[in-house]
Structures are given as structure tokens and as C-alpha cells.
């Protein structure tokens, strides 16, 4: 009996067939495993990226071919006041919204880092704005910013009597810009706060104890313990936040569609407007390509921030 058992195992192996043995070949297995992911990414990401750069140098229109026109698209964009205004608006939007998100998100993370009752429920609630489809919450903001029936205006004018007239949130350029930035900050706070909270929780309490024994004030504890320990995560979250704020599309498209008079247009919405409804695929692609230098700059920043902490895959991790 005890002789039969190993024999059984030995006999079962060839039964698994040639295919199974092929899958035991490591090289074949690696290729087979990587094919679906790499294939999809090459066809629908790398190739379109190259195609986009090519389109930017052509005068392609939707549904029709185009010809190579050199840097003509970029030259005409450089003389286009709407595009130049859009670049400024995009940088302004990204800078102010990111600063707001980080100031408020860090504050929220520090608040959550205290021992709180119901902390898991509070955390779940805080993530809600991040979970819900952006366009749908943007529509809610659109209604909150309604010129006539805005609830904010109602509270300020009719309840608190602080203002004489309703605020025209989306009617004037600066009001519209700041309304959009506020909505973007609202949506971005949860991600920043929860990520930074994760970073805060990795800081060892003994560091704070040591600082307290040395007589450090709360501000000094924050400045000399929390801030340096949080820097690596802060850099990563900051890069992601800048990247996705800079390429934001949904909020602006849903709330103002770039109006009034293109004063809230971002580069992404302008690329869409020129490219799809406008049909000028080449020009839209040129606007999208113009975003790449900014995105590369923040990606490099992310790479170096990450590599400083040793990249996730690295053998010498920890």
C-alpha cells in the first residue's frame, strides 16, 4: 500500500498533458501572464499616445484624413488668446486647488489622527465625495451655485443678512473660477486626508514622546517630527493630486462648460471642445500634447520622491 502512493503521484504528472508542461516552462508562463495586460496597454494606451503626438502635427478632422502640417498647430495656438488664457487658467486652477486640498486635507488628517470615537465610520463618511461619480456631485454643485436659488446665497442674504444680493457664482469670471476651485477642493480633500492619515499613523509615538521630554511645543513637534516624517508620502500624494487636477475635465465640463466666455476653460476641456464637437482633431490633439511637458515634470518629481524611499519592487526594500 505504501508503495502504491508515490507511484500514483508519478503517474498523474504525465496525465496533465503537454499543455500543462508548457505552462511549467517559466519563460512561456511569464509571456503568457504578461500578454493580456501589456497587450491591452500597448494597443489602447501606448499606441494612442503616439498617435496623439502624430495627430498634433496634422490637420486631421473627425471622420476625414489629415496631412502633416509641421508645427502649424502649435504656432497658431501660440497666437491664440483663448489658448494662452486657458494655460494660465489651468495653472492657476491647479495651484490654488492643490494648495487648498493640501492645507485642508492635512488639517483633517491631523484631526483624524487623534483618538476619536466612531473613527472608522467617520473615515468611511469622509471618503464619500471621492467615491461618488464626479459628474453627479458636480451637478449637485451646479444646483448649489444656481444664480437664483443657490442655497448659499439664501443663507447669506435671507437668513444672515450679510449680503444684499444673491451671489452670481457662475456668471462672472472670477466667481466662476473660484466656485470651480471650491468644488475641486471638496472632491479632493478625502483622498489627501486619508492618504496623509496613513502616513501619520506610521510615525512612531516614541518620537513624539522623546520630543515632549525635550520640551518641544506642539508646533515644534509638528515642524520637526511630523513634517519630515510625512514628507515622502506628501510628495507622492502631491504629485498625483497635481497630475489629476491639471488634467481635470469633468468638474468644469459639468458645471460651466468653460464659460462664461472661456474664462473657466481648462486645457482638457478646450482640447475636447476643439476636437470632438468642433471636429478639429489635430488642433485638439495639439492642445493635449501641450499638456505633456507639465505632466512629465510632475511625474519625474514623483519618480524621484519614490526612488528616494526605494521603489516598491526593489529587492532592498525596507
Amino acid at each position: 500500500m505504501d508503495v502504491a502512493a508515490p507511484a500514483l503521484i508519478l503517474r498523474r504528472r504525465p496525465e496533465a498533458g503537454r499543455l500543462a508542461r508548457l505552462f511549467d516552462n517559466k519563460t512561456f508562463l511569464i509571456c503568457a501572464c504578461l500578454t493580456p495586460a501589456i497587450g491591452l496597454l500597448v494597443v489602447f494606451l501606448a499606441y494612442p499616445l503616439g498617435l496623439g503626438v502624430w495627430l498634433a502635427f496634422t490637420d486631421t478632422q473627425i471622420g476625414g484624413g489629415g496631412e502633416y502640417v509641421g508645427i502649424e498647430n502649435f504656432v497658431s495656438l501660440a497666437h491664440d488668446p483663448v489658448f494662452l488664457k486657458t494655460v494660465f487658467q489651468t495653472i492657476f486652477y491647479t495651484a490654488v486647488a492643490t494648495a487648498g486640498k493640501f492645507a485642508l486635507g492635512l488639517w483633517l488628517a491631523l484631526l483624524l489622527n487623534h483618538a476619536l470615537p466612531f473613527s472608522s465610520i467617520i473615515r468611511a463618511i469622509i471618503l464619500l465625495p471621492w467615491i461618488v461619480p464626479t459628474v453627479l456631485s458636480a451637478i449637485a454643485f451646479w444646483w448649489i451655485y444656481d444664480p437664483q436659488f443657490s442655497i448659499i446665497s439664501y443663507v447669506l442674504v435671507d437668513r444672515l443678512h450679510l449680503l444684499a444680493h444673491n451671489i452670481d457664482f457662475l456668471g462672472t469670471p472670477w466667481h466662476a473660477r473660484f466656485s470651480l476651485i471650491a468644488a475641486n477642493i471638496w472632491r479632493g480633500i478625502p483622498f489627501v486626508a486619508i492618504s496623509l492619515l496613513a502616513g501619520l499613523q506610521t510615525i512612531s509615538p516614541s518620537l513624539y514622546e522623546a520630543a515632549m521630554l525635550d520640551g518641544a511645543s506642539p508646533w515644534q513637534r509638528f515642524r520637526f517630527v511630523t513634517a519630515p516624517m510625512l514628507m515622502p508620502i506628501l510628495a507622492v500624494v502631491l504629485t498625483f493630486s497635481v497630475l489629476f487636477t491639471f488634467s481635470d475635465f469633468q468638474l468644469v465640463y459639468a458645471i460651466t462648460r468653460g464659460g462664461p466666455f472661456d474664462t473657466t476653460q481648462l486645457m482638457a476641456t478646450l482640447a475636447f471642445q476643439r476636437g470632438i464637437p468642433g471636429g478639429q482633431l489635430g488642433e485638439g490633439a495639439a492642445i493635449a500634447v501641450a499638456m505633456i511637458p507639465f505632466l512629465v515634470a510632475s511625474t519625474l518629481f514623483s519618480y524621484f520622491a519614490l526612488s528616494r524611499r526605494k521603489w516598491q519592487q526593489g529587492e532592498a526594500n525596507e
Binding site: 499616445l49 498617435l51 496623439g52 489629476f244 488634467s247 475635465f249 470632438i276 482633431l281 490633439a285 505632466l295
Partner: peptide
């Protein structure tokens, strides 16, 4: 890190 907003046209 490649945002959909630069990919959707191509």
C-alpha cells in the same frame, strides 16, 4: 500616470 484627458482624442 497618463491621464485619460490626453488620450481621448487619439
Amino acid at each position: 500616470l497618463v491621464p485619460p484627458t490626453i488620450l481621448f482624442l487619439p
